[in-house]
Simulated assay, not measured.
Amino acid sequence: MDLFQILRDGRPRTRSELAAITGLARSTVAARIEALMDLQLIGPIEDAVSTGGRPSSQFAISGSHRIVAGVDIGASHVRVALATLTGSILGELKKTITVDRGPEELLGWVTSALQQLLDESDYSNSDLLAIGVGLPGPVEYRTGRPINPPIMPGWDKFDVPGWIGKSFDVPVLVDNDVNIMALGERHVAWPGVDQLIFVKVATGIGAGVISGGVLQRGAQGTAGDIGHINVSRGAEVPCQCGNRGCLEALASGPAIARVLETEGVEGIESQTSAEVVGLVKQGNLQAIQAVRQAGRDIGEVLTTCVSLMNPQVIVIGGSIAQAGEHIIAGAREVVYARSMPLATESLHIVQSRTGADAAIVGAALLALDHALSFSNVERMILENAPRVPSTVRG
């Protein structure tokens, strides 16, 4: 097991502990520690308790010398942030802007905002290791390009990594927003959980799937696209994807708003999630019932997910989750009634604890996982190693 990957859990360890865990010789461990310290990836901390003689120095991942950046692009907002190597957010900027304004305008603001954050911080561009980006649509993870995103005109196959890379000479990782929200929620609220489904319910519906502690993207990056699974109650309800009866057409924020508008409920003007949440918080009975039914529809789809994946935790996030326990209660009602008892005896179905911060934290983690991967750290060590001059033969 690699020494640096062991230290990524944040727990300080001595040279002796690292030698025992890795099976490496003490001299090899010492050389490896020296190389990682030269890169400012780890550093010594307070001395460990010793049984005699000199105290044993402990080493841990450094959170103060190198950084990554996270970018959260939503349907109507953009957030950018700098983060330490432990995932702590150092500073951020936010702008209200709709994604349909196009990639050049939004990414132009992103690069300017990131440069502003760097200029106002104690870090320089050379301290930046990678940038993670979340987009509100399908993304081909291998290339970082959005593919036929329904609410993102002008973004199809746009080279997001290439655009940002013109301003920052670091790797740029791009994924869909619900995947990075799953990463952020697990990191903050469920670090010990290896089987987790994060469901985002907002303008659309999607899921981020973590299995075995690893985010599952699938063959083409569309794993977790539960919003377009058929729900029996909605056989005749059209969806923007062209099919009928999709979960998204029944249980998304705009879908709930359309139901309330049809019922003559006042306060629905733009058919948005915010209007629905506002009515629920005001105690409007029709809105509460509509959100609860949306939860039941989501629960119908999640029942299949529970049978297939057997998760420990299902987290409901996104703007509609702000309606509180009503949508959670609807999902629980169906999942616990229809799933096998063994699959649900320890299953938690809960509201997101990270809330609106899940995506920005997850975007930073996306960058961290790449920047601190074994292969990337090895590359940095080799590039930083002193060059031995070749012998000139006469």
Results as ranks from 00 to 15, higher is better:
G87R: 14
A274H: 08
V99N: 05
Q271M: 12
Q216A: 06
G278V: 05
G206C: 13
E105P: 04
G144I: 05
G134F: 01
T354S: 15
I45T: 15
G52K: 13
S307G: 13
G102F: 13
R393C: 13
Q220I: 09
S121A: 13
V301R: 01
R32A: 11
I360A: 07
L39I: 05
P55A: 05
T344V: 15
H65V: 00
T354R: 05
V170D: 04
A290N: 08
A337L: 10
A329T: 15
H348I: 06
S27R: 15
L285A: 14
G283D: 05
V313T: 07
D47R: 12
P150W: 07
F198E: 00
G394C: 08
T22P: 02
G218T: 03
A83N: 08
C305N: 02
S373C: 01
R101F: 11
R32G: 01
I349H: 10
L118D: 00
L39N: 06
S76T: 14
K95N: 10
A81R: 05
Q289H: 08
S319M: 08
I151R: 13
E333P: 00
M380I: 01
Q322H: 15
I381R: 06
H228G: 04
R379E: 12
G184Y: 03
A20T: 05
C239A: 12
M152R: 08
D119I: 02
V170S: 07
Q216T: 03
L90Y: 01
G264D: 01
M309W: 14
G154T: 02
G242W: 07
R142F: 11
Q240V: 05
